[in-house]
Amino acid sequence: MSVTRTTELRRLADGGRGRVALGVLGALVAVLAWSAVSGSSENIYFPSLLEILERTAAYWPTPEGVDNLTASLRTLGAGLGLAVLVGVAAGLLIGQVPVVAQTVSPALEFVRAIPATALVPFAMMLFGVGDEMKVFLIALGCVWPILLNTADGARGLDATLLDTARVFHVTGLRRALGVVVPAVLPRVLVGVRIAVPLSLILMVTSEMVGAQRGLGYVITQAQATFQLLTMWSGIVVLGVLGFLLTTAYSALERLLLRWCDPKRVSS
């Protein structure tokens, strides 16, 4: 009896619909468990889930909440966009011109090893506590994984591909956009995938140390004034934001790589 039941369960977990059903069940159980444990909680630091959700619904749709959210998203988008632009451009250059790679790679290794948040004070000294500081910091932290992956991809370009381009006299801009960029794209996307969570960390950190707006600001401010429900609601919103960002990015990645040979993407 129990043997057949476990095999049944196993088969269920392997199928697509079964997986979704089990996952939904898991999420439901987790939420119920959280609200059950926290519902009767006397500990002020861990308020009940229901109250947190009520506060989330009450605070974040207000003009102030929306303002904080959009401020965060704007800096995130600008910083990440800048990182992608600079990272891809520099990565292509470094990957394709061996002299440049040799000259700068030890310096790159060093700068990359510096933990991105150690540069928060540096960015604050340069730009003060404005939006530029946050965008600069996010871009500075996120550019390395993108740059290094792009450079690796550009270095490992398929020789047959390049030779074919030469035979057909594909040169200049057409070669760059039509041959090199599509071939490097999978690696660029891997770099961005590493950069996305990093950008969230940097966004929150920069907002915690120097800002009057944004998600990180709301969370620290709520902690300082002991509004624990608002603090928790900020954490929940950040969790949802992180989840949405990674999900949206996975979808984008699949869309962009549809033409690609899956074997080469994974290697």
Partner: peptide
Amino acid sequence: RPVVEFLRPIPSVALIPL
């Protein structure tokens, strides 16, 4: 899996105040 996928992308710096 969904629980992991929800907890994983929470930037852990958000937990600093807590």
